Structure formats: structure tokens, C-alpha cells
Simulated assay, not measured.
Amino acid sequence: MNRVIIIGGGIGGAATALALSRAGFEPVVYERTKELREVGAGIALWANATHILKNLGLLEEAKQVGYLTTNYQFNSQHGKELVNVSIDRFELPVVGIHRAALHQLLWRNVPGDKFRLGETFERLELQHNQVHAYFASGLRVEGDALIGADGLRSRVRSAILGDEPPTYRNFKTWRGLTDYVPNKYRPGYIQEFLGPGQGFGFMMLGKGKMYWYAAMTAPEAQPDAAVGRKKELETIYQDWFPTIPELIAATDEADILTTDLYDRPPTQPWSQQNITLLGDAAHPMLPTMGQGACTALEDAYVIAKCLREQPNPIAAFQQYESLRFPRTKAIVEQSLQSAKMGEFKNPLAVQLRNTFIKLMASAISSSFTSLHAYRA
């Protein structure tokens, strides 16, 4: 068992290619875009993910292009502190990093011949323990195993599990990136503000970049307001904590992305024979716990470990799934639970939620600890 086909060259696919190369396999990544470019904005790599980077020998570089994060603070919409969790209590750091910087770090360490760009996966066939993958260009490749790391609307997932669409969770989100650092920003902090059916958060990334995100309950596929994204957000958040409208005003319209939020109720199996799924293709989750990219890194590392221990890919993928399912199921459910706390709109319900969060401070802190103390 040697040749592994990976569909999708995002963070999960690139990390898998790197982990497999290091473990002595021959992975080849097929990515539909013509250049390796990770869009999006910032992510927090919690200790469970920096553990993976350390094992892949990339942690020091990640720290150089990222920013060390020490606290996670929840506040009311006007800036009254509800909970302040210190997140630098582990043997490993929490790093705020731009998605593109992490992506680059991963694929720069994978030999160049392991990536085939501009190849759109269409279908697959199983023949005599070999997987045959067919692409829109007419390319056909075969391998001993295939891993679908092709995201929320994974074509590999559809091929092996059917076309069940992901679940819209009634939230729309905006993400912005700016060089402007507000003078009230507390160094090392992720600061989150909770209002009626809305939230806003920001954190520092490497290279002096500030990353912010906003979320609001909304119907699916709601178009941008006629005035444009930036103006719409300035209006929505005008009377929030003063740093928030400042950050929006300092961001170029072109640097504001918007997406609807989806997940899938956790179900098994993810695998069929010598084909399996990874990251969002297997267990898409809401961003409320900040674990999407982190769990994809864990998946990549575990899959390489299982293939090293089990020469038969069918047995290896079963082992991988049984190791990963309980953890990712818990995080998907926790992320959804956390999002539901953000749905309250009635002022009294919002006040009760904020009081509840304050009362639950130590429970919130210990749930953060157990989530990030995991070492794949």
C-alpha cells in the first residue's frame, strides 16, 4: 500500500499530504483551483492543533508568521466583561494565524510533484482493491486509497454516501482583515461581544494584521444590502463597543467576506472500503468553537498514523474513523450548542444569557481546557 489519492488541496488536504509524505507514502493531491490559494481570513490554532504542527516540525515557523494568543474574553455588546479564560496554560501555545500563511507553510513543505492543480474530481470506481478517480479534464488516476478532503460540499462524500445537503444553521457571517490595530485592543486577547441575535469578535494575527468576524441570524442565501457589505455592518454595529465600528470603518470593502453557516449532524460511516473523508468533508462544524481547521489537522495526523500501523487501507480507515468520530461528534454538537446561545433576540433573554455565561465562568474555562488538552 503506497499510492494515496487526495482530493482537495486546502488546509486538510495539504496537511494530509505532508503527514503521509513524512510517513513514507506517496500522496498526490488533486485540487480544482489553478493555483494554491487559501481564501478566508484568520484562525486560532489552539494547543490541540499546535501539537500537530510541532509533530510535523512546523511550530516554530508558525509562531513566526502568527501571533501568540493568551486569553479568550466574552463581553456584552457594550464591552462589559462576562468571562475571561486564560488559554496559555498548556505546554503548547495558541497561535492566531492567517489561513493563507498556514496553508503556505503546509504545502511549502510537501514536494512540488505531489500537487496537481486545475483538476476537478468527477467520479470514482473501485476495481480489485484499487480506486480509480476520474476528472473533468479527462485525467484518470489510480491509487491504493483515496481521501476526500474537498470541503463542505464534498464530491467524494456524495460519491460514497449520497447527495444529502449540509444543514443551514440560521446564521450568516462576515470576516474582515485590516492593518488597523485599535488602541483599546488588549494584546494577546481574542475578544468576543454578544448581542441580540448577533455577535462580533476580533483577534490579532501575525504581521500586524487584525482579523474580525461578525455573525447574525439571517435566512439562507440572504443577499448583501443594497448599500454594500461595509455600510450594512457599520449600521448594524454602530452602537456597539466603540472598537467594533472602528474596525469595520478601517476595513476595505474588498477585504470583507461573507458566508452562510452550515454543518451536518454527525453520522457514521465516513468511509467505504479504501476511501475515506477528512475535515469538512467528514464532519463540518460551525466556527463557534474555532475547531474546523484544528480538527482537520488532527485528522491528517491520525490518518497517517493509522496507515503506518495498518498496511491494509480498509482496516486503517476503519481505525481512523473510530478514533476520530467520538471527538469530532462532540465538537460539532458543542459548536451548535454554542451558536444557539447566540440566537436570543429578546432583551430579557439576552440579559439572562449573559448572566448565565458569567455564572458558568469556571465550567466554560474547564470545557476550553479539556477541548484543547487533547493530543492526537
Rank of each mutant, 00 (worst) to 15 (best):
N2L: 13
R3D: 15
I6M: 11
I7P: 02
G9M: 09
G12W: 03
G12H: 05
A14R: 05
A17Y: 01
L18K: 00
S21R: 13
S21M: 04
V29C: 12
V29H: 10
E31V: 06
R32Q: 15
A44S: 13
L45Y: 01
L45E: 03
A47V: 04
I52L: 03
K54I: 00
L59S: 04
E61D: 15
A62K: 02
K63L: 12
Y67K: 12
L68E: 15
N71W: 11
Q73A: 14
Q73W: 01
F74N: 12
K80G: 09
E81H: 02
L82D: 04
N84I: 05
A101T: 06
L102D: 03
H103C: 07
L105M: 09
W107L: 09
R108G: 15
G112M: 04
F115S: 09
L117V: 11
T120L: 13
Q127L: 13
Y134A: 13
A136H: 12
E142W: 03
I147P: 01
R153Y: 08
P165F: 05
R169N: 14
K172S: 13
W174A: 09
L177S: 11
T178V: 09
D179G: 08
P187R: 13
G188Q: 08
F193C: 07
Q198G: 00
F200T: 06
M203R: 03
Y211D: 08
W212D: 05
A214K: 01
A221N: 15
Q222T: 15
P223W: 03
D224T: 03
R229V: 12
K230H: 09
K230W: 05
E232K: 09
E234Y: 01
Y237A: 04
W240K: 05
W240H: 05
T243F: 00
E246W: 00
A250N: 07
D255V: 00
T276C: 10
T276Q: 04
T276N: 07
T276H: 02
G279I: 06
A282M: 06
P284K: 08
L286H: 05
L286V: 09
T288Y: 09
D299Q: 07
A300Y: 00
R308N: 11
E309T: 07
Q310L: 08
N312L: 10
A315V: 14
Q319K: 15
Y320S: 12
S322V: 05
S322C: 07
F325L: 13
R327K: 15
K329R: 15
A330M: 12
A330S: 15
I331M: 13
E333W: 01
Q334I: 01
S335T: 11
M341V: 05
G342S: 10
L348V: 15
L348T: 12
T355N: 10
A363D: 13
S370F: 01
S370D: 13
L371A: 09
R375I: 04
